[in-house]
Design a protein around this nucleic acid. Structure first.
Lengths: 343, 343
DNA sequence: AAGGATTATGGAAACGATTTCAACAAGCGG
DNA sequence: CCGCTTGTTGAAATCGTTTCCATAATCCTT
């Protein structure tokens, strides 16, 4: 079962390789007769071009890589899927690799991408450790777009193309809302502070406390950096301690699940005894009884915007093109927050 | 910023291309001196091989494709991630494409995979429509492993390599359990009957009814084929009708969410007024109050087993190798099922 | 109708690796 | 010391395309 090449087509049509190639690529300088014959022969033989050979010659692979911490996380998966749809539309194929936030694997994958001559990359770095790698790639001609991270926040003018979510504004809205309800002791359960989303959220939180003239120390603003899977135990500990928070802001499905389970274990009723607010809107938040008030942003928009930014660069429109997109965050009011009980 | 090739390494080391290639690929017949010099030169220059060129020559790309209906579905994503981890370990790179169960896109992606000379594919066909495509691929030398589908169930001996989940046994266990609790009117909300998982579940269901001598017609065994997003409305309709079911078996996160929401809307208490059993164990099922009894199987195992099967074929161990893996399903008892109220 | 400008065609050289093959060196037994 | 085997090395072919360049053909202009 031998594959048929452009040679076979040329022979079948009684033409030269160059003519066939030109005809198939819709190049100029092709007579109608030749075009017709070539297409006919190609169809008859069932010719399928070899992308590898083509890529080798043209030095563009038509593939785009995506580095993400964990594709089994629905939030990431949704972003990736939206990006993939847009990129496929434009003729690119998306290759996804989960790095588990391990800088070594991140770097290895990035180098492999380069070795495979991928045209561009969407990356969501797990830390700032690989800044050098991204620089290398960019210098080597790879188009890179960052997903909701900002490894070079202080770099002034020459910033990375990136798609960012306005987590700070979201956190501020949530905090204002809870403080407005009367809460003063609020726990914020979020991931590692080194990553942009958490960093921004924490900053937003603090800003609002300062704005309102509330001392954040007395407020028991509480940030946890332990892995997500410990959320359940961690929450139990927090809620059992003296001066336990009256409201908890929890990041994402996993932590939210831990918090809700902890509340149930302690016999606390939401929202009577404890207000809960989810950062990120998931099935769990929407369906839980009571339904959980949540911060929501569009994952599809992130994926689409990232793809669009990358396509811009792949087309070479780097000049006046915008470098970054900032996506809004909404506060979806549901039933899981209420004024705190008398304390 | 020109990329450096094997030529440059050869020149720097004062050797021929062939020697360098042999040395780098750990081939035989390489003197210690040459090996040392080559590695030194390659390191010094920062040489990175071009996978494209290599693939073109060796006719193997080191890439494996994965066709899946929807990567943003956590169940699929988990499978994919496990497979990816195993394949990466073996030096392969996984390319994932979401097809949305559209046969045309499926076929297009499969052909593109072939055009890019992917060595193998994991596919989870959305229907039987593309049977011909898979046959073509296999005939063309691509290793194909099917994920929890069985497009050629009746084919006797020459079956596809596939990883299957024992949905039938799972459904039987669930059905026996519900009938044992006293339920007679059970609704089964599941996807399109054309796909193996649903087909098997329905068969299992029916088997148990027959086994127990219960007439399935009177039992209101009820199968819905409408898209998942309509689960909420559909459930409302079912529960409002005469002879409404006393138990609902719901497939996956989305449908389960719809069912729970419908129950809440109607003021039905789970499990007092309605027993609910989830097919597939998700965060939502585990955390919901009450916690939802669920059928569980290991997604990681599916991914790993599929990768293993594919690697076997890629290594050419087709002979005595086993064609397929059958994975078990467990019934996880929680709090969402109880004997039906007096009707 | 001739000359120059444009356009269609085919031959051959890339692209960057692997692999075959022949040449050459060294080791070894007799 | 010769012939044979074994082990190293480099030149060249190859993978399937695209693209540069030279040449042949066609068109337009005066």
């Amino acid at each position: 079962m031998n594959v048929i090449t452009i040679r076979d087509v040329a022979q079948a049509a009684g033409l030269s390789l160059s003519s066939v190639s030109r005809a198939l690529n819709g190049g100029k300088n092709v007579s109608a007769r030749v075009a017709r014959d070539v297409v006919a022969a190609a169809d008859r033989l069932g010719y399928q071009p070899d992308f590898l050979a083509r890529s080798l010659r043209t030095r563009t692979s038509g593939m785009v890589g995506c580095l993400v911490s964990d594709i089994s996380n629905p939030l990431n998966a949704t972003i990736v899927q939206a990006a993939e749809a847009r990129l496929r539309e434009a003729g690119y194929m998306l290759v996804v690799v989960s790095t588990g936030n391990d800088p070594a694997r991140e770097r290895a994958a990035a180098l492999e991408f380069r070795g495979r001559r991928l045209d561009g990359m969407l990356v969501s770095p797990g830390s700032d450790a690989n800044e050098k790698t991204w620089r290398e790639l960019v210098a080597g001609g790879t188009a890179v777009v960052i997903l909701d991270r900002d490894p070079l926040e202080g770099d002034g003018d020459n910033r990375w193309p990136a798609v960012l979510v306005d987590h700070r504004a979201g956190a501020k809205a949530a905090t204002r809302y809870l403080i407005g309800l009367g809460h003063r002791r609020i726990a914020l359960l979020t991931a590692d502070e080194r990553m942009r989303p958490s960093r921004e959220r924490i900053a937003g939180f603090r800003e609002v406390f300062a704005e309102m003239g509330i001392d954040p120390a007395g407020a028991r603003l509480c940030i946890q950096a332990s892995p997500m899977d410990f959320a359940h135990g961690h929450t139990l500990a927090i809620l059992r301690a003296d001066g336990a928070p009256t409201a908890i802001v929890a990041l994402g499905t996993r932590i939210l699940a831990g918090v809700l389970r902890a509340a149930r274990d302690l016999g606390l009723s939401v929202p009577r005894d404890l207000s809960v607010l989810s950062v990120g809107d998931t099935d769990l938040a929407a369906v839980h009884t009571p339904a959980i008030t949540a911060l929501r942003w569009s994952l599809e928009d992130i994926g689409r915007a990232a793809a669009e930014l990358l396509l811009q660069r792949l087309r070479g429109d780097v000049g006046q093109a915008q470098h970054r997109a900032l996506l809004p965050v909404d506060l979806v009011l549901r039933d899981s927050c209420a004024p705190p009980a008398r304390s």
